[in-house]
Measured scan of single mutants.
Amino acid sequence: MEVRTIKVFTTVDNINLHTQVVDMSMTYGQQFGPTYLDGADVTKIKPHNSHEGKTFYVLPNDDTLRVEAFEYYHTTDPSFLGRYMSALNHTKKWKYPQVNGLTSIKWADNNCYLATALLTLQQIELKFNPPALQDAYYRARAGEAANFCALILAYCNKTVGELGDVRETMSYLFQHANLDSCKRVLNVVCKTCGQQQTTLKGVEAVMYMGTLSYEQFKKGVQIPCTCGKQATKYLVQQESPFVMMSAPPAQYELKHGTFTCASEYTGNYQCGHYKHITSKETLYCIDGALLTKSSEYKGPITDVFYKENSYTTTIK
């Protein structure tokens, strides 16, 4: 009895394709271990004539594949690729409408935090270190965002349907971005203890939790000093293409032309909904596939993004 075979390709990165001759009487799992086709788990399936010449994702289970996976995804987590594939199996079914010149995501599976993050990423200057993220990001900007969303979920250790947080998501993504040249110098002034300067680099240099107003941050924000008295913390120097200011959701007025974009969060910790506000020729609110415009805006804002380049204080 002759062994019926077909020729397929296996890959971990969709760049390096490895030619395989597979036995049609055995499952993919018996031949390769966990195997995925377009995100779908085909591990328990036997090869079919229609699979001839198709590319299958496999887990990096030998040295060659491990090197290829690390170079593309910059992670050695053995569960990463499987999590990416199972997320992709959902995100490829989502709709990605162009809204006001940006790629958004039609609401499904509690994905409003991903839509808000995706919209924000198209408006701030950011370059990702893992080629996987950078490639998928370019495709997302062009309207094909399924891979990018699935990668975000995998890097953030999230599953489809789980509630997510924009600030946490951005923080994970910033860790995989090139923020080497970003720098922030802060000064804390206390009447009792004097003053202390701190220099922050990388992710810490672009994120701040405690106030939404970048102007206020430049002037000074009140913080408790270690001595128990009130101290003032203010920005001395900022070198970065953008800054992200966050605070627990509270009524906040966004003035046209003073910011790049913002995240609105309605609801409580267990259950809520994100919308995205962007400042173009007027203010726009993007909620999944829905767009509304207004000249002014007041609502429960939790993150505001500002364009920056270089700032030095005039406070002496």
Rank of each mutant, 00 (worst) to 15 (best):
V188C: 08
V21C: 14
E162L: 02
A69G: 07
L173R: 08
Y306L: 09
R167T: 02
L65H: 02
Y297K: 03
Y311V: 00
Y57N: 07
T76C: 14
I301V: 04
Y311A: 05
Y297G: 00
I223D: 06
T198Q: 15
L81R: 06
K46W: 14
R66D: 06
T76I: 11
G29Y: 08
E162N: 00
V21L: 14
L88A: 07
P131S: 03
G82A: 15
T159C: 13
A146P: 02
T27Y: 10
Q237T: 09
T75N: 11
P78F: 06
A289R: 02
V67P: 04
V160G: 02
F80S: 02
A87F: 03
S181I: 00
E162H: 08
I223N: 02
Y137G: 04
K7S: 13
S310N: 12
R83A: 09
T116M: 05
I15M: 12
W107T: 02
E52L: 10
Y84N: 05
M170F: 10
N61A: 12
V166D: 03
L151C: 07
T302P: 02
M245Q: 04
N187P: 06
D77N: 10
L133N: 02
R83D: 08
V21G: 11
I105M: 03
T266V: 07
T232F: 08
F174R: 09
T75K: 09
A247W: 05
K191N: 13
T116Q: 09
L81D: 07
C182V: 06
P78R: 14
C271T: 07
S213L: 01
T103V: 12
P249R: 03
G220T: 04
M85F: 00
T64A: 13
C182E: 01
K233G: 10
P97V: 14
I124S: 02
L283S: 01
T313K: 15
T266W: 02
F80Y: 03
R141N: 10
R184M: 01
F32L: 13
K158P: 02
A150M: 05
C271G: 08
T314Q: 14
E215D: 15
T282L: 08
E2S: 11
A145I: 05
T292V: 10
A108F: 05
D287A: 03
T232H: 01
T64W: 08
H273D: 01
T226I: 10
E239Y: 03
Q270F: 08
D180V: 05
A154E: 09
C182Y: 08
T226L: 10
V12N: 11
F148I: 07
T292N: 09
C271P: 04
A69C: 15
T5S: 13
I223E: 09
K316T: 02
Y265E: 00
V243G: 04
I223F: 13
H51W: 04
D165G: 00
T192K: 11
T192I: 10
R4F: 08
K275E: 03
E281C: 12
P97A: 10
Y306A: 00
K316D: 15
A205N: 03
F148E: 01
P248Q: 08
K233E: 14
T211L: 10
G288F: 07
V67T: 13
A69I: 07
K92M: 10
R66M: 15
E125Q: 13
T19W: 12
A117Y: 10
T260M: 15
T258W: 00
D62C: 08
Q230N: 09
F174Q: 00
S295Y: 10
C149D: 02
P131W: 09
K316G: 15
A40D: 13
L126P: 04
T19V: 14
Q230G: 04
D23C: 13
N16F: 08
Y306F: 02
S246H: 03
Y28A: 02
Q98S: 11
T232D: 02
T10S: 10
I124G: 07
S294N: 10
N16H: 09
E162D: 12
G53M: 13
F56N: 04
K255H: 10
Q30C: 07
F32M: 15
L102V: 01
T192A: 11
N147W: 03
F80M: 03
N309C: 14
H256P: 14
M209Q: 14
D23N: 14
L151K: 04
Q134P: 01
I277A: 11
A132H: 05
Y269P: 06
R141L: 13
Q237L: 12
Y284N: 01
N111E: 04
A250D: 12
L153F: 03
V58I: 14
K316R: 15
F148D: 04
F80C: 04
T159G: 09
K158I: 00
V58M: 11
N110V: 02
V42Y: 13
H256K: 09
I286S: 00
A177Y: 04
C193T: 06
Y269K: 09
K54V: 11
A69K: 01
Y57L: 07
F305Q: 06
S86D: 14
D77E: 12
E281W: 11
T258V: 01
T35I: 13
A205F: 00
N268C: 08
S79D: 11
I105R: 05
M24P: 12
K158S: 00
M209A: 15
G164P: 07
P249V: 05
H48V: 13
N111R: 00
L114D: 00
H18G: 01
H256C: 15
D63V: 09
L121Y: 01
D135V: 03
R83H: 00
H74A: 03
V185G: 01
G288C: 02
K46F: 09
R4E: 15
P248C: 08
D62K: 12
L179D: 01
L119I: 01
L114M: 04
T5V: 13
P224S: 13
N157I: 00
F259N: 09
G228V: 02
C261Q: 00
K201N: 11
D13T: 06
D23P: 12
A205M: 01
Y297F: 04
N157H: 10
E204P: 09
L235S: 02
Q123Y: 05
Y208S: 10
H48F: 13
G39Y: 09
V188A: 10
Q122E: 06
H74C: 09
T211M: 08
D287R: 08
K307W: 00
V58Y: 05
K93G: 09
S310A: 06
S310M: 13
N178I: 01
G53L: 11
G267D: 00
T192H: 01
D180A: 10
P60R: 03
P241A: 09
G220M: 01
V206N: 08
S181Q: 13
Y138M: 15
T292H: 12
Y96W: 03
M26K: 15
L235Y: 03
T11M: 05
T19Q: 10
F217P: 01
P60S: 08
A108C: 14
A40E: 13
E296Y: 14
K92E: 07
P97F: 05
V42I: 13
Y269T: 13
L290S: 15
W107S: 11
G39W: 06
E125V: 05
E308D: 07
Y306D: 00
Q237G: 05
L81E: 05
K229L: 10
L88T: 09
L133I: 02
K106Y: 10
F148W: 00
A69F: 14
D63P: 08
F174I: 02
T116L: 10
A146H: 11
A108G: 05
D23M: 09
V8G: 06
V206G: 04
G161C: 05
Y208C: 03
A140S: 06
D62H: 06
K127H: 11
Q237N: 10
V42R: 05
E239P: 03
P249K: 00
N147K: 11
I286R: 02
Q123I: 07
I223V: 15
A247C: 07
T313D: 11
Q197Y: 03
Q238P: 02
T278K: 02
Q251F: 13
L88C: 07
G194V: 03
G101D: 10
L283Q: 03
W94E: 06
H273M: 01
P34S: 10
A117T: 06
V189P: 07
D41K: 08
F32W: 15
V67D: 12
Q196F: 13
T258N: 00
L37E: 13
A250Y: 09
P60N: 05
C156D: 05
F128K: 01
G53Y: 12
A262H: 01
K46H: 12
F80D: 02
I105T: 04
Q134V: 09
G39H: 10
Q270N: 09
H273R: 07
K158H: 01
H176P: 07
